[in-house]
Amino acid sequence: MRTSPRLAGTARVAFVSLLSLFMLAPMYILVINAFKDQQAILTSPFTIDLGSATTKYLADAWSNPDFSVPYGYAVTLLLVAAVNALSIGVCTSAAYVLARTPTRVFRLVLMFFVAGMFVPTQVILIPVIFVLRGLGLMGTLPGLILFLTATTIPFTLFVFVGFIRMLPRALDEAAAIDGAGAQYTLWRIIFPLMRPIVATVFILNALSVWNDFASPQVILGPGSDVYTVTTGVYAAVGAYSADYTKVFPTLLLAVIPILVLFVVLQRHVMSGLAAGSVKG
């Protein structure tokens, strides 16, 4: 016996709705409990009581000396921008050469880069400390930017090479006949055509830099005053995880801007992720 399509459709909608509720429940609890005191959180975590709602704890979290939300955001956004600019910059020119020079050496170079996609980056952070110490960049933002750039290079280069290979060589030849040099051809003719892949890479790298906790924790270290959103949340909440009047307001402040950004850009984020789904 076969179930009728209509019934199956209703069951599908019901199932997805239930699951959606389950996915959203933690967010709901986070939002409403950010306005309650500890007692109210423990006795009635699911209910909204406008009468006793208070913004006191949100204000406390906002002015926490361990974690200033705007500062954390500024540092993290700076990281996202710098890592992307550097990574896309160096990978575009390298990928152009690797894609247009199909010699054996350059194929090996590409494989050497691709192998880096499989290295679990947080695990090699300890030796990275010694490299950065040698460069005098340990505990600094430039050091963190360089390391995060290195972690994004394998994937970025891999998808850029794949993309440039699909662009017709006639473009390069026409430019060369008109007297354009390699740099001019690359940045004025090839790079503008790479916009879709650059957008994909930008989104994926932004997400991985944004979500990273281990690298800023180890490289910036507890001694430095520079913190990102993740290390700031850790400093603010880590030691007080049973004090929910600290946990919920801090987490709420930390996630709201990125959630708003995601909802606005969700189509681009998800299609970018799908396009680059080879990322490890």
Partner: peptide, 27 residues
């Protein structure tokens, strides 16, 4: 020129990903 265009990517990648893996093996 071509080699020059690959060098910056190689330097960052080798310096901060390949060398640390080598250091890890050594340490």
């Amino acid at each position: 020129t071509r080699a020059g265009m690959v060098v910056p990517a190689v330097m960052i990648y080798v310096g901060l990903l390949v060398v640390p893996v080598g250091y890890a093996v050594y340490y």
